[in-house]
Design a protein around this nucleic acid. Structure first.
Lengths: 294, 294
DNA sequence: CATGAGTATCAGTATTGCTGATGCTAGGTG
DNA sequence: CACCTAGCATCAGCAATACTGATACTCATG
């Protein structure tokens, strides 16, 4: 199971084609075909059906492992590269949309004014992308948010050793259309909403899967999936009766047509965590220290 | 970063010698030397000092990734192998010493009598070994125990997708020598014991690291490390004033010279979980189902 | 049935990855 | 203090491998 072959396999599944994967990887189609054949011979199981190219049962299983494996290989390389040349003139932050609080923004700006030659960059994207960026060394630290019990850590994909700590906790709120019968309530219980229609917005809001874990309940079926990381747009969807979503209470300020009602039960909070590698660059460590104390 | 080379690297570190690693792996010393040289050239960093052979800073970092990476490669292979030929005539259970409760034992025996041709095997070992055995396919299911908040999952190393659920929860108790001033108490608060002298018995009792996480506190320094999985022996050490340890309350029954006092604060339980792969063999699934309902 | 898009196979070649022999160096020994 | 030796590095040579490019095959489509 050569990592190169695994990479080829993942590309083949993603492109749904041997030839397209070959182009993407800079190989010939012949090489890709041989990679897959070698993997199938090694594991003694067919991995993809041909025409159409679809992962088989065994292929699905392999995929579950292959992606994290490749990510971790990159993480290992990045960890060691950081030891050699720690770009001290750079501060790259990867964050999920709900995670860049005013306090963080202020700290970032202060770091920049304190050291004007520091190249500060912020990249907003999906939660998993932010984590990945730190693991692979593309970012120096990540800010991710989610729902959890008051002092529990966030459930994050564990692809390597990262240091994490909370930098903010706010009440968790459900976003309802202003016209919703429950919109006027001062507070709501989450179990009462399990049967409601939800929007699954894994990047922009609290993912429903995380909500199910935190509330220890099934339910929370979604009628609509929202791909993207813009919270304002999510508010528009909620206002248009697309379904419910959960975010931090302060996040909903200024959304028109949307009511944000705090959730009292179970005792959940919206928590923002800062993640950085074990051996952070100097500017990243400083920023982390600032936010830890705040 | 060829997995073969990583395997060689890990072996070199474990053996503290190139030649010994070569013998262990069935290579020549020359090949091992070339593997390490290739890795160092690839990562552009020295990985081990020579004479004595010790991991460098970069080597330590690589090790943190290499071991889980190799484990997961095995897990991937095992997952796919299970699809092909699911040994339905075998039921191999790997468990941590505190995890084989009477209920589990009874269920195992019932499974055996119900299907006399079933080859039932139980292997007791360290927690991580049990998890590893299931991932690598050497065992069909694992039973592990530990401390956690009442309905939280156990903190387990995440090296792949496993299904887990609790099969037992008992009060958590601290083991004290019978002569200890606190031994007569009906109950104890964990924070009051943070400054005590502990035995770190990561295999036999609740690991101190897990206790720190569950209690959200530092402290719990150990004065003695106990390697091994025999709980009776641990009791002897406690009785001899070697330090404190925590287990499930019923576990301490019949230990002479040892007092077991339940812990009331923070609200922690001793929890036993059953782990199995996503696609368990038929006997494993049946046993899991029996224990889930119990 | 003819066509085309796409995968499998094959031969050939450059590269890789071993072994076995030998060189080199640090640490121990008389 | 010179020598010895255990153990890592290096080198040449050979076998296995991993690509490319050409070609054969195989479905899905009109």
């Amino acid at each position: 199971m050569d990592p190169q072959q695994l990479r080829t396999f993942v590309a083949v599944v993603d492109h749904r084609s041997f030839s397209a994967a070959a182009r993407g990887l800079g190989y010939t189609q012949s090489a890709v075909s041989q990679h897959i054949a070698a993997l199938e011979a090694d594991l003694d199981a067919p991995l993809v059906t041909r025409r159409p190219v679809t992962p088989t049962e065994a292929g699905e299983r392999l995929l579950e492992h292959a992606r994290p494996l490749l990510l971790r290989l990159d993480a290992a390389r990045a960890d060691i590269a950081r030891l050699r040349r720690a770009h001290p003139g750079r501060l790259a932050v990867a964050c999920a949309p709900g995670a860049l609080t005013p306090a963080v923004a202020n700290a970032l700006v202060r770091a920049r004014t304190a050291a004007p030659q520091l190249a500060v960059s912020v990249r907003v994207g999906a939660r998993s992308e932010a984590v990945q960026a730190v693991l692979a060394g593309a970012a120096d630290l990540a800010l991710v948010d989610g729902a959890a019990a008051p002092s529990d850590p966030l459930p994050l994909p564990d692809a390597g050793p990262l240091t994490a700590f909370a930098i903010a906790q706010e009440p968790l709120a459900v976003l309802l259309p202003a016209s919703h019968p429950l919109a006027g309530r001062p507070a709501l219980r989450l179990p009462d909403l399990a049967a409601a229609r939800w929007i699954d917005a894994p990047d922009a809001a609290v993912p429903l899967a995380q909500l199910r874990v935190a509330a220890q309940s099934d339910g929370f079926e979604h009628q609509l999936t929202y791909t993207g990381s813009d919270i304002k747009t999510l508010g528009t969807l909620v206002a248009a009766n697309g379904g419910l979503a959960t975010t931090a209470l302060p996040m909903a300020a200024g959304m028109s047509g949307v009511a944000a009602v705090p959730i009292t039960e179970p005792r959940l909070v919206h928590r923002t965590e800062l993640l950085h590698p074990r051996n952070p660059t100097a500017p990243a460590a400083e920023l982390a220290e600032t936010l830890r104390l705040a």
